[in-house]
């Protein structure tokens, strides 16, 4: 019974990782940039919510209405003001710049909020759960997170397939020069993509903050979980990222069940096995080059 509980928790945790991974792979898919500060922006979202809730006295879930648009704008401006200048200049500039941003964001958060772990106070919601029987119960927050992840992925799929802007995203991803010839402003598309990635990241950060305590230096671990969900699931596959997240969450929870210190290690090892056996991921649809 303990094991069934472990599996259920692992699957639900996968929803959070899918949110992490989607933001990362969206950016890579559209402009072939890997954002090394991705995890730190997740933490920025969480801390921004902490700030909003403590200043305005709002519940964390309501703070989404403020934090997500602010983060969208921040991502949009980051791309417009800084990262667009590096497009077409090779691999090095965006990597160095996002790595620098990662270190900057970590230290700014540490200065503003101290190095201590903190949590978002969502009251009874934090621990509320639906009992299935004596031993198994499903936490409301993990369930909400999972449902939000599925909704975000479904929304993105509709956006890419059904809207003009979504088509422009896909066109820019396939061939930016030809897309420009068709009148698409690729720089605007890149900025929008970064904005959407930031919005998803903010959502993930807030949901994370309600579930567990978090600290300014947690960013790199979040980046790695995002990466692992993408690698296991396969580059360029939306629903693959969800599957990858679920496999990652399951591996971590099963590892921790065997030995509490193996939580992260188990996830890394499963990722490395996938990389060794199937480097394109389990559910890959597109290639990266």
């Amino acid at each position: 019974m303990q094991w069934i509980n472990t599996l259920v928790q692992g699957i639900l945790l996968g929803g959070l990782y899918a949110l992490y991974g989607t933001g990362l792979s969206l950016i890579f898919g559209v402009m072939r940039i890997v954002n090394l500060a991705h995890g730190d922006f997740i933490m920025l979202g969480a801390f921004m919510s902490l700030l909003v809730t403590s200043m305005l006295g709002l519940p964390p879930l309501i703070s989404i209405a403020i934090v997500v648009p602010v983060m969208f704008l921040l991502g949009f401006l980051l791309q417009r003001g800084i990262l667009n200048q590096t497009i077409g200049k090779g691999l090095m500039p965006p990597l160095v710049i996002t790595f620098g941003l990662s270190i900057i964001v970590q230290n700014v958060l540490q200065m503003g909020f101290s190095a201590d772990s903190q949590g978002l106070d969502a009251g009874a919601l934090e621990t509320a759960s639906i009992p299935i029987n004596d031993q198994i119960s499903i936490g409301i927050m993990p369930l909400i997170t999972f449902i939000v992840a599925v909704a975000v992925l479904a929304g993105l799929q509709l956006f890419f397939n059904r809207t003009k802007v979504g088509q422009a995203f896909r066109a820019t991803s396939d061939d930016p020069e030809t897309a420009e010839l068709m009148g698409i402003n690729s720089r605007q598309i890149y900025a929008l993509a970064m904005g959407i990635s930031f919005a998803i990241v903010a959502l993930a950060g807030i949901l994370l903050g309600i579930r567990t305590n978090f600290a300014p230096t947690d960013g790199p671990a979040r980046l790695i979980f995002a990466f692992e969900a993408v690698i296991i699931g396969g580059l360029g596959s939306l629903w693959g990222t969800l599957a990858g997240g679920i496999i990652l969450g399951l591996s971590q929870n099963i590892g921790a069940q065997i030995n509490p210190t193996w939580f992260q290690l188990a996830g890394h090892i499963v990722t490395l096995i996938v990389l060794a056996v199937r480097p394109t991921g389990l559910f890959a649809r597109t290639r990266d080059s």
Partner: peptide, 27 residues
């Protein structure tokens, strides 16, 4: 393992390996 990843993802891949070594030592 790392060379199976291209460009930017290679960077995170090396980070994962560093974490694997750290966690193994910590264990």
């Amino acid at each position: 393992l790392g060379f199976r990843l291209r460009g930017g993802y290679f960077a995170i891949g090396t980070w994962v390996m560093a974490e694997v070594f750290r966690l193994s030592v910590t264990a």
